[in-house]
Simulated assay, not measured.
Amino acid sequence: MAVSGSIMVGFLVLHMIGNLKIFLGEDDFNHYAHWLRTMGEPAVPYRTVLTILEVVLVVAVVLHMWSAISLARRASAARPVKYQSKKKSHAQGYAVHTMRYGGVIIAVYIVWHLLDLTFFVVNPKGSGATPYDRMVADFDPSRWFITLFYVVAILLVGLHLNHGIWSAFQTLGLRSPRSNKALRALAAGVAGLVTLGFVSVPLSITFGLVS
């Protein structure tokens, strides 16, 4: 769970940085998209490195989901009889439901995102357009519902990140009375930065700041 989650966090941070290049203009964004596909050339064929990274990411996502299901089953098996007193804080219950149901929505979002901006099946411009044009067309004001879907999914990713990073700190034994506040702030900071970075792109396009 921790290893696969770390891989995904690293990917999200790098992916966010790349997406923000859209604010530098069409040429910079298209150049970045081209560079992703030509990494390693001429030592390796076109798109080899990117494909390897995508495979690693898919494996990490599958392992993360498998780990979550396995841990839930182990916890249930270890305590087949429910507690007589359900003493659970509001924060704990909220976190559990966010991770569980938010994870399902995030999985649906990942599938849509791949069909949209990787395989271009549901993108208005299709495979014949430039990466910049596809991105702008995707979040056109007339397609506000797509923007809304992306923003909601990214907000759930942020909540997932916040709780996941904090849980990882606990699992690794880094939490202590002295480090508690700092680690919570770090988890919230990383989650907030990634969320803000990702939502800024579709919102800027929908509201005409990027066109």
Score class of each variant (00 low, 15 high):
M1L: 15
S6D: 10
I7M: 06
V9S: 02
N19R: 07
L20W: 06
K21Y: 11
I22D: 08
E26L: 05
N30M: 13
N30T: 01
Y32C: 01
A33R: 08
W35I: 03
R37P: 05
E41L: 10
E41I: 06
P42I: 07
V44G: 12
T48I: 06
L50K: 05
I52A: 11
I52F: 05
L53C: 02
V61I: 14
W66K: 02
W66N: 04
L71S: 14
A75N: 09
S76P: 00
A77V: 00
R79F: 09
R79N: 07
R79S: 14
R79Y: 07
Y83K: 15
K87W: 03
K88R: 14
S89L: 12
A91W: 05
A91N: 02
V96W: 11
G103L: 13
V108A: 15
W112L: 15
W112H: 10
L114I: 15
D116M: 14
L117N: 13
V121G: 05
V121C: 07
G128Y: 11
R134M: 15
F139I: 09
D140N: 13
R143G: 04
R143I: 02
F149N: 03
V152M: 11
V152C: 13
G158E: 10
L161F: 14
I165K: 02
S167N: 12
A168C: 06
K181Q: 04
K181G: 10
L183A: 06
G189A: 11
L203V: 12
F207D: 09
F207T: 08
G208D: 01
L209V: 12
